[in-house]
Design a protein around this nucleic acid. Structure first.
Lengths: 148, 148
DNA sequence: AACGATAATGATTTTTATTATCATTAATCT
DNA sequence: AGATTAATGATAATAAAAATCATTATCGTT
């Protein structure tokens, strides 16, 4: 995700915050910034530690709360895999994608298939179901783990 | 799921138990039986209450443990949706299927599309990924909720 | 059928992630 | 600047699932 996307992401979030009559704070800013410097699929705890580097006074609850806010705004999404703790993935600037999940090393590979997307919509409609979003996870062995 | 399937399911489970050097107990029997009488997507708590009807002395931990065993054996699968508590779905005798999930009423609709299945395998292989299983969940509004 | 080894049970505690509480702080409006 | 009230941070509460452990029950062996 490039810098332009980051700016847009932050602007979108600020707009969301303002629309809900919420306030802009140093902590929110720090959390959103750290969210980008960190890896694509981060846990609340990891993000907390990352933010603490520059803002030692930050509280865990604040990080958790703001991650929840980001999710509510639709800019971010929770990823839950098996017994792992919830990870957060930012959605802005990245097209929708599905995940290949390695059951050996836990690697997440982002993939997309337009045909599958279309067939999913068709499948939903055939059941008089209005599709809003979907989640496709394929579990298996990644190329690295397949060699050993 | 008919009675024949139930018998096969139980036999398969017994075989699994024996292979692992585990023992057959009244509680296991009662839990597996209740698992069938109950709905298709049941929580550990619901199953516990169901079993307690006929076996008041059953412990919660025993139900949980045996559900975990069923999952390990592959006969049963966990379904986690949003913040809901884990539900368990028996897999034996029912072909693989995906889920349409109504975000209004929570209804689970089981669906299947052979074309999607094949494209998924293709997608995985294009990434040098060996697919083992997958999970497709389409969230949206079901026909009943769409009317109101 | 009784014995012994040990798996399973059931009551309870622990763990772990997330949410709620609440006094204090700080952002925003007038 | 002052008032209002949202946000924070420390902590407690929740809740689901897993771990612990003394007791019970299963099952192969005799």
């Amino acid at each position: 995700m490039n810098n332009k996307d980051k700016m847009r992401f932050k602007e979108t979030f600020v707009r969301y915050i303002e629309e809900k009559g919420m306030r802009h704070t140093k902590q929110r800013e720090a959390i959103v910034d750290a969210f980008f410097s960190a890896g694509r699929h981060i846990t609340a705890e990891e993000l907390f530690n990352a933010v603490k580097g520059k803002n030692p006074e930050i509280g865990y609850a604040t990080v958790q709360r703001n991650l929840n806010l980001l999710c509510e705004s639709g800019l971010t999404e929770e990823i839950k895999i098996g017994k792992q703790k919830t990870r957060y993935e930012q959605k802005y600037g990245s097209r929708h994608h599905d995940h290949l999940i390695c059951i050996k090393c836990g690697r997440l590979i982002e993939v997309n298939d337009e045909k599958i997307e279309k067939l999913q919509d068709k499948l939903a409609k055939a059941n008089n179901f209005i599709p809003i979003k979907h989640k496709l996870e394929i579990y298996g062995i990644c190329s690295a783990c397949g060699k050993s």
